[in-house]
Design a protein around this nucleic acid. Sequence first.
DNA 1: TTGTAGGCGTTATCAG
DNA 2: CTGATAACGCCTACAA
Lengths: 346, 346
Amino acid sequence: MADGPTINTIAERAGVSIASVSRVLNGLPTRQETERKVLKAAEELGYVRNAVARSLKSRRTDQVAFAMADVGNPAYLAMLRQIQPVLKAAGYRLVLHSTDAVAADEIDVLHSLGERYVDGLIMSPLRVTDAHLEMLAAARAPVVIIGSVPEGTPVDNVRADSRTGVRLAVDHLYALGRRRIAMVNGPLDTVPGAARGAAYREALEDLGLPYDDDLVQIGDFYRAEGARAVAELLARVPDVDALMCANDLIALGALDVLRAAGRRVPDDVAVVGMDDTDLAAASWPSLTSVSLGSAERGKVAAELLLDRLRGGDREPRVVTVAPRLAVRASTAGPAYEPADRKEGGA
Amino acid sequence: MADGPTINTIAERAGVSIASVSRVLNGLPTRQETERKVLKAAEELGYVRNAVARSLKSRRTDQVAFAMADVGNPAYLAMLRQIQPVLKAAGYRLVLHSTDAVAADEIDVLHSLGERYVDGLIMSPLRVTDAHLEMLAAARAPVVIIGSVPEGTPVDNVRADSRTGVRLAVDHLYALGRRRIAMVNGPLDTVPGAARGAAYREALEDLGLPYDDDLVQIGDFYRAEGARAVAELLARVPDVDALMCANDLIALGALDVLRAAGRRVPDDVAVVGMDDTDLAAASWPSLTSVSLGSAERGKVAAELLLDRLRGGDREPRVVTVAPRLAVRASTAGPAYEPADRKEGGA
DNA sequence: TTGTAGGCGTTATCAG
DNA sequence: CTGATAACGCCTACAA
């Protein structure tokens, strides 16, 4: 762990100037002989470029960050899988941050942007506080937000249309004859929580169904929390016949609880998730879910960031990705009995 | 996105020297008046320290990296959840890398260590190639490997004891009366794949059970791959009565396939996973799984790294975490029928 | 307590 | 094509 060699060490050993070393290392035109000597010396010394010094001079790190609110949520993984290759192909290394939706951690990541550790940032905050907005306004490197920020925030913004998404789901449930459609949501002070809650209410009203506070249960966007919320809901409203869950993890928790309670899905209670993650197709029964285009949003976000990094000093752009309903067994297919019925939903 | 202010900008505005600015910003003793002026100027300018320049001088970044082979595997998340707070408490920012078990990506992360972007690294490689070992030997910053590296590799090493772990599981299955115990493994050229495969063979032999190639199926450490592998296995060896899966994801895939095939778990086929992730307890039926102490390993790794970062220039240390069998429904409990039987396993 | 100046390892400009 | 040399932004003796 002794101090590593620098271009100076190489220069000495090769008997050339540091300028020549730098040139060789950066592939600039050099005499064959010089190049050979330098490369040989570098090799022998086990030289590794000090990227920190390089960044200081070049003002670039060739690194980009993606800050995820919940690493355990496959929706973010779907984004990651799209973001990673796009940036990699463009020569950037992607570093991840796990913020656990803690505002302070997100602010810290934003801060690290200012510290110049990365050239750009993709972030998907659950809550958007004033502190967030301040830092975004002051950001000196490109930021792309996946999720919604207020109009006028000077960053690119890739949005889901959860309003339409929730409507797709509620309409689907209604079409199946469900009339006691409950909503299991995450915290209302989160961006998705607020949007999905409002959308649910709106969808019901448009269908002429009464909005009933009892049918709304707030928990959090995790499986265990979802399960807890659904347990409470069932106790309070035993006649509920459909659950609109604010994400797939909540929906999986719902399935756990319904199974334990002996309620058949979808016969007794239909369940819809959101995000259409891998888990939705893999669960039992498989889960109908509203795709909010996680993968697509990741891809778009990466491309927007890349565009900015390449010098696009354009107006902030807002892209909205369209939702899609993936109908599966939890609302329309066979429930516990070994498959074969063919009825299809909606 | 104009060029940000530096300590020079602040110095001018505050009418002091850059040295004073630096001192104030670092909390060194300064006259009240000076401090006030500097802080005011910094505030007004929206100053953010350039961490790159700071690092160049101080030779520290206060950042540490954790390279995960598979972000989608909850076993790594369990590690992460332990690593994160330990390092954070010590003042380090944790950055994550997703390598997808691609050797080239892992080498790149190791390279980034040499580039001085981070002060240390925790890494959990699936395969350990010569290139890995070379870079580890040459590493100029502390590295902790979660997983096994050959004796003599000059890095701290936190190991699981999958040998004992597999044995616990196989013995358990044997005690339940199972005699056609198959193994569903990941690639044999991975460290865990090789270890678990060998352990399985050894465990059978010690029980006096014949080792049968037909009972071994190689796939990969993901759910879909696990499902595929189990489907093949079932087709080839219909009378199998127990599956020892090399991790929980494979085991979940196994449950999917068994359910689709109408085989009852555990009545017809008992299933054991490894890693004892959150998913094991949450699956249906809940999954018996060998805990290899992911959380514990993460914690130990973080502490070892911290020790090194604090100057511990000691001998490389090897810590092995003991396995534990978590018995659940997939081997011992009720299967598909609504619970109530009380028999307990082993 | 404060300012001046040197240096961290690179890159890039400018003469030679 | 090559070699001095000046930044990049910050920290830190050392001197005042």
